[in-house]
Amino acid sequence: MIMKIEELASLIKDGCKLAIPADYSGVAMAVTRELIRQKKKKLHIIGVPTSGLQSELLIGAGCVSVLESSALTLGEYNPASRFSAAIKSGSIKLIDATCPAIHAGLQASQKGLPFMPLRGIIGSDILKNHPDWKVIQNPFSQDDDKIVAIPAIKPDVALFHAPFADREGNVWVGRRRELVHMTQASKTAYVSVEKIVDGNLLDDETLAAGVLPNLYVGAVAEAPSGCWPLSFWHGEGEDKEHLDHYKAVAGTQDGFDEYLQQFIFDGEIP
């Protein structure tokens, strides 16, 4: 259960349907660099409910065939150049959604249901272009009341970074409950953590409410500063200088390839 990052990344196979959190929730960047080093192919990324640099890097490195998300944003470091280039060349398939629909699809999976109905959306071009959503009549209403049915989203793996875990594989996520929902919707979770701690996290009731129990967890690896260069909600802020550098070089494929060589294949991490 507790393993090295390289081993954890090797469990993620080509073609994996991979659920990853938004930038505010703990992004497993160290594992992502290892996925790129291991040259993964044809990943189906699910941004829960959005994604950022993690998807941008995986797309630029040619690891992704499908991006299912409500947005891909680098925040103030936009535009995401490799994402834009992939859209232009048509090299990835897009399944564009809206945030609560991603949550609803995961919630359906979490509950073992075929779909979850959701308000809003009707009249949005997102609905027109989404391959799976259906508009149905509210079966409990006598009036004309249409509602969107979101089919279950069932990822193979949930991948994220958390503050700490114990040696049994119980992971503390605090109030970042979307990580729990995302994990319970997936077949398993692979988690990097700032540190592995002694004892069992469930023994302490004040911690227990924020614990993702190891029933749902397949692998844990220790990765201090595992979100770098992104910020971590329970740790360091973002590395602005590095992100500015990324923005400056990622505009061309050559610049991006040099970035990959320097920071991922040669592994030069400050």
């Binding site: 947005a71 936009n78 834009s84 564009d96 945030c99 809003g120 949005s124």
Partner: peptide, 18 residues
């Protein structure tokens, strides 16, 4: 889907606006 430029995406707007 081949927008130029492509912006980040719709986020929660297709829901919250309603």
């Amino acid at each position: 889907p081949n927008n130029t430029p492509r912006w980040p995406g719709t986020f929660g707007s297709a829901y919250l606006y309603f």
